[in-house]
Design a protein around this nucleic acid. Structure first.
Lengths: 240, 240
DNA sequence: ATCTTAAACTTGTTTAGACAAGTTGTCAAC
DNA sequence: GTTGACAACTTGTCTAAACAAGTTTAAGAT
């Protein structure tokens, strides 16, 4: 048996998504959850805390947990989600064109210094991809994956899903990422791959992804057509 | 005595900020924290979970809690932080020009429909401000505050800090916000207030802020100079 | 020297209970 | 009718204990 709190979380989330618990109404009280799922109160509270953290409910002391009007899927969403996972959630025809693949090149560290990367240039595998959505090229992804973590990256994994390969085949435990969003003028490569006019802008998302043992292993620069870029965020006010 | 977990969190965070616990090193173990602070293990774990959630540490089972190389302050940062709070953290001379103030106008709902707002046009107080940083106008903030929550908003509060007024004077309990970032062509008002050229782009952040009882009360459209815009995010990979 | 095993650490999960504190409705006193 | 006190709900905080599971080290057998 594994992780009751997570099971309760999944079940409640599913019921919220399916409108069993509608926005504006209250979830069962903590004591009711104990009986419903046969768990202790603290276990139920962990599930509720997770739901609150992710913006699905708002807890109100003395009253209960109210379901928040929640956002539909957006592209790209906050959090670490792979392109393939996103595409599956949405109803879009999507294509993935690998137009660059180089092994044993040097990580362009200066590109990620603003994200706190202070490592000497390390050997990486460099991948360039264009994401084509509904027949239109919208995103350029430039990935740099540390050779020390992934010595031999199959080209097929780049064409399919890097994350599925990292987690499924290699058993890597991806834990967290820091990302930075800026707006920059489109360069020649952007204009060519995304079919942009001169003077166009792109939204640039640079991110560093780390494993559960806190070692960074993947560096990504993602360049989006300005008119198609949309980023969603849910944040709680930290007290004091 | 109030909230031991939060006290421990604050103390650990302070020590991390001051490099008492340096990036790459381990915090005291959970059992050691029990002795250090005279708390139970679960209480200490809550403090650690919060630190992990906010990207300060990474917990590794069997080993301990390692301090993550963490980001310096950025502008604007993720989360809900008021402009004034941000400005105080950074060493910038900042100015706040109120150039629009209207009471009892109608909330432009269509502007926030993509954030899940489905209320009929409600009476609001509308404020327009320009944020001047180091002598340069960088951001336009358009705020719409529900009259039903804040019946009479002093113009002085707009010139100083809305959040300080909401929380300090009115005792409102601000809980969470959803925000959306897009890139849009600058309009006439942008060009005038931010002194932009024709063809320029702006980064637009639209947000809906809600109170602890889950009622939305503040709607903001924030328009940033493209070249000065920067957004930081820390995200954890959700399992399964 | 090498391998195996076990002990002693670490974090992860769950329980049962206690008390504090906010909300709501009821009922009695006025 | 209005008010106030109380009971019965709700969530918030904290504790002590137990067991599972991953990591490291050291002792012991080979």
């Amino acid at each position: 048996m594994v992780n009751k709190a997570a099971l309760v979380y999944d079940d409640l989330l599913q019921k919220i998504d399916r409108d069993v618990y509608k926005p504006g109404t209250y979830l069962p009280s903590e004591n009711q959850l104990c009986q419903l799922y046969g768990i202790s109160r603290e276990t139920g509270r962990k599930a509720l805390a997770e739901l609150a953290e992710n913006g699905y409910i708002q807890k109100i002391r003395g009253k209960g947990s109210i379901v928040i009007e929640h956002r539909q899927y957006e592209f790209p969403v906050s959090g670490i989600v792979s392109y393939k996972e996103l595409a599956e959630k949405m109803n879009v025809t999507t294509e993935n064109v690998v137009y660059g693949f180089e092994e044993h090149v040097s990580l362009p560290v200066q590109m990620f210094t603003s994200l706190g990367v202070e490592m000497t240039a390390a050997p990486v595998t460099a991948i360039k991809r264009v994401r084509v959505i509904d027949g239109e090229p919208d995103i350029i992804d430039k990935d740099y994956i540390l050779t020390s973590i992934v010595p031999k990256l199959p080209k097929a994994a780049a064409a399919d899903s890097l994350y599925a390969y990292f987690e499924g085949e290699l058993g890597l435990d991806i834990a967290y990422a820091t990302k930075e969003i800026t707006m920059e003028p489109a360069n020649d490569e952007d204009r060519e791959q995304l079919q942009l006019d001169a003077g166009a802008y792109v939204a640039v998302v640079r991110s560093v992804t780390s494993l559960a043992d806190a070692t960074p292993f993947q560096f990504t620069e993602s360049r989006h057509r300005a008119d198609k870029f949309r980023f969603r965020d849910f944040a709680r006010r930290t007290k004091k």
